[in-house]
Lab assay of single mutants.
Amino acid sequence: MTYKLILNGKTLKGETTTEAVDAATAEKVFKQYANDNGVDGEWTYDDATKAFTVTE
């Protein structure tokens, strides 16, 4: 299944996707991606759209 990450960081904005077996796996991938790019903020998840959002 495809999951999307929407980044609303102070220095990094954009979107990326990942293929994962479930939302928990996608969340781990996205949190590592955000951490690697220096984005740390409030996380939300919308199951209807399979989209995670992180806002700094």
Rank of each mutant, 00 (worst) to 15 (best):
L7G: 02
K10R: 13
T44K: 08
D36R: 10
A26E: 00
D47R: 08
A23E: 07
D47E: 14
G38Y: 06
T16P: 03
D46A: 04
F52V: 00
M1T: 14
M1A: 12
I6F: 11
W43I: 03
A26F: 01
G41R: 01
D47P: 15
E19C: 14
Y3R: 02
T49F: 07
L7R: 02
Q32Y: 05
Y45W: 04
N37M: 15
D40V: 15
D46W: 03
Q32F: 05
N8F: 11
A48M: 11
A34C: 15
L12Y: 15
V29M: 09
T17H: 10
A24D: 10
V54R: 01
V39E: 02
K4T: 14
G41K: 01
T53W: 06
D40F: 15
T49Q: 11
K13Y: 10
V39D: 01
E56I: 11
A48Q: 11
L5K: 01
L5S: 01
T17Y: 15
M1P: 08
W43H: 00
D40A: 12
G14F: 14
D22R: 03
K4I: 13
A23S: 09
A48G: 08
G14M: 14
A34P: 01
T2A: 06
T16A: 10
F52M: 01
T16I: 15
A24M: 11
D46R: 03
K10W: 12
V29W: 14
D40L: 12
D47N: 09
G41S: 01
K28G: 07
W43M: 04
A51Y: 07
Y3N: 02
T18K: 04
T53P: 00
K50D: 02
D22P: 01
K50S: 05
T53F: 07
A24I: 10
G38T: 04
T44C: 08
W43Y: 02
G38E: 06
A20W: 02
V54S: 01
A20Y: 03
G41T: 01
T17W: 14
N8T: 08
K10V: 13
T16F: 15
T53E: 04
K4E: 03
T11H: 14
A34E: 00
N35H: 15
G9T: 15
M1D: 12
E27Y: 15
K31F: 06
T55Y: 08
G14W: 15
A34G: 03
T44I: 08
E27A: 10
Y45G: 00
N8S: 08
T18A: 07
A51S: 15
E15P: 04
T49N: 12
K28V: 10
A20G: 04
N35V: 14
D22H: 04
F52A: 00
D22T: 05
K13V: 10
E15G: 06
F30V: 01
K31G: 03
T49R: 10
V29I: 14
T49M: 11
D36W: 07
L12T: 09
E42D: 12
G41E: 01
T18V: 14
D36Q: 11
K31P: 00
V39I: 15
G38W: 05
D40R: 14
E19W: 15
E42S: 11
M1G: 11
G38L: 06
K13I: 09
F30D: 00
A20F: 04
E27R: 09
Y33W: 14
A26P: 00
F52C: 01
T16R: 13
G41H: 01
I6G: 02
T49P: 03
L5R: 00
A20R: 02
N35L: 15
K28T: 08
L12Q: 08
N37E: 06
Y3H: 03
A51D: 03
A24E: 11
E42L: 13
E19T: 14
V21E: 12
T2R: 12
T18H: 07
E56H: 07
A23L: 10
Q32R: 11
N8M: 12
N35G: 08
V29Y: 15
D36K: 10
Y3G: 02
K28F: 09
D47Y: 09
Q32S: 08
T2W: 12
G9M: 14
E19Q: 14
Y3K: 02
E42W: 13
A23C: 12
G9W: 06
T25K: 05
D46N: 09
V29T: 10
T44L: 07
F30Q: 00
N37A: 13
D47V: 10
N35E: 14
G9D: 03
F30N: 00
T11D: 10
Q32A: 12
K28Q: 11
K4S: 06
T49K: 10
K13S: 09
M1Q: 14
D22K: 03
L12M: 13
E27P: 00
A51I: 15
T44S: 13
K4G: 03
W43F: 04
E27G: 06
G14S: 12
Q32V: 08
V39K: 02
T25P: 01
V29H: 11
E56T: 08
K31V: 06
A26I: 02
D40H: 14
T2L: 13
K31C: 05
D46Q: 04
K31Q: 07
K28E: 08
I6C: 06
D36A: 12
D40K: 14
T49H: 10
L7M: 12
G9H: 06
L5P: 02
N8V: 13
A20H: 03
A26H: 00
E56Y: 11
K28N: 07
T53A: 05
D46H: 05
T53M: 09
D36Y: 08
E42T: 13
G41P: 01
T53I: 07
E42G: 05
D46P: 00
K10E: 08
K13P: 05
G9K: 04
E56D: 09
E27S: 06
V54P: 00
D22Q: 03
G38Q: 07
T16C: 15
G14I: 15
F30T: 00
W43V: 02
K4A: 05
K10Y: 11
E42C: 12
D40N: 13
L12R: 08
N35K: 15
T44W: 07
A26L: 01
L7W: 11
E42K: 10
A24H: 09
A23T: 08
A51N: 05
Y3Q: 02
A48N: 11
T49L: 12
A20L: 03
T2M: 12
E56V: 09
G9V: 10
D47A: 14
K28C: 09
T16D: 03
G9F: 14
K13D: 05
T16H: 14
A48I: 12
K13F: 10
E56C: 07
D36T: 08
T44H: 10
W43C: 02
V54W: 04
A51T: 15
E42F: 13
L7V: 12
T49V: 07
K50R: 14
A24W: 10
G14K: 12
T55S: 08
L12P: 04
E56G: 06
L5N: 01
E19Y: 15
G9L: 15
T25A: 14
E15V: 14
N37T: 06
V29K: 08
G38D: 07
A24N: 08
D22S: 07
A51W: 06
D47C: 07
T49W: 06
N8C: 13
D40Y: 15
T55I: 09
Y3C: 03
T49E: 10
Y45H: 01
Y3D: 02
N35D: 10
T2F: 09
V39H: 04
E27V: 06
E15Q: 10
L12V: 13
A23R: 13
A20N: 03
K31E: 04
N8A: 08
A26C: 01
A26S: 02
N35R: 15
A24F: 10
N8P: 04
L12S: 07
T25I: 07
F30K: 01
L7D: 01
V54T: 02
L7C: 08
E19N: 13
E27N: 05
E56K: 04
V21M: 13
E56S: 08
N37W: 14
T25W: 07
T53D: 02
T11C: 15
I6Q: 04
T16L: 15
T18M: 11
A20C: 07
